[in-house]
Design a protein around this nucleic acid. Structure first.
Lengths: 198, 198
DNA sequence: ATTAAGTTTAACCATTTGGTTAGCAAAGGT
DNA sequence: ACCTTTGCTAACCAAATGGTTAAACTTAAT
């Protein structure tokens, strides 16, 4: 593994645990097992290093989301696939959602930056699909944006608010993962139950 | 307004915007229009000041949640009341959820601290109520914890991930509030549709 | 008027922090 | 062999930061 990769992994870890403000360059260097000056040698500054880490983190999520947003599946099938594959993915990177959400909240200008990216999640196709399903009478009439929010909320929130959730419903890390596994099918079942006619 | 109150309000504001790590004592002092030494005079340290602010913030939310958790209403009525009153409340303090979630994630030991509080949100009564409704055949069989998560997710997530949400579905602050207003009834409708039999 | 307690300020301190510099060592091209 | 580039380190620096101190001011009780 190259030094640059070591730095990247270490930075990813530390930024995720401490956030941009809480992270210390020295800690990242220690974690990578290298000299602090190397951080500045490869990445010019803390900001630049963070930006690289953040964009890569987001870059892992975005295409995954987009692929499903824009697939040619049936609406119900899309919902099933999205919840299942998103949760599968996030169980592997359990701190990604809270990291992304936190840094975006603390740094709203970031939003603009990455919204210009090609790979940004773009829900317009899905929104249109929802509208058509309503017209065709396949589902109850509702606001597509609300439905989108429903899907995202149910899927992402438990990970984003992990510590709080585990605390309030009093479960261990293992139980949490089991609950999320079960949630893969639970969410789509709930949503489809709620919106389908008849 | 006493100096102590001024400090408290200023600290609330700054901690909410910057988080514990990002907040600067000097900024809090400036915001309160007082000398930095006063912060240490009234609250011994940054940690103590933060703890006071955080506990008060949480103390605003917790009783509100608990009141509905433990009311004697019918299950459906409870869900309706919870989503509506929670959203009404949070529209007034839009940064509370992300603040609480963020600091808990960055500081997991905090969870233990406040879980010992009397006023902590305790869902056991609601869980039992869900179980009874299933036995009586009023709703479809499902995991009460999943249902709890559904309700919380749909209600809290849009506020917790505010910046991201506004960015992705491309809406202004005003449109966001309008969407949340509509959401008061949308959420309970969706959930009740999903779980009720027949 | 005096005292004692609480409140406020400016100056100060030690430590931490992001960042820089100068120099070394290895590699590679000529 | 010589030079240039690249990777790397130890020592250093200026600024920022949480926290302290000693003195001044205010208020109310005696």
């Amino acid at each position: 593994m190259t030094t640059e990769e070591k730095i990247f992994e270490a930075a990813f870890k530390v930024f995720q645990n401490k956030g941009f403000m809480g992270a210390r360059m020295q800690e990242i260097a220690d974690e990578a097992g290298i000299n602090k000056a190397m951080l500045h040698y490869f990445f010019r500054s803390k900001e630049k290093l963070f930006e690289a880490v953040f964009m890569k983190a987001f870059g892992k999520l975005a295409p995954q989301i987009n692929e499903i947003f824009n697939s040619d599946d049936d609406l119900f099938e899309k919902i099933r696939k999205f919840t299942a594959s998103y949760i599968t993915f996030v169980i592997e990177y359990p701190f990604l959602p809270q990291f992304i959400i936190q840094e975006m909240n603390n740094n709203p200008d970031f939003v603009e930056k990455f919204l210009k990216e090609e790979q940004r999640p773009n829900p317009i196709k899905l929104v249109k699909q929802i509208e058509r399903a309503i017209e065709l009478g396949e589902i109850m009439p509702l606001s597509p944006k609300q439905l989108l929010l429903d899907i995202f909320s149910m899927t992402v929130f438990p990970f984003a608010a992990q510590t709080l959730v585990k605390g309030i419903i009093a479960i261990s890390d293992d139980e949490f993962i089991a609950l999320m596994e079960a949630r893969k099918v639970h969410i789509s079942t709930q949503i489809i139950n709620a919106i389908q006619k008849g």
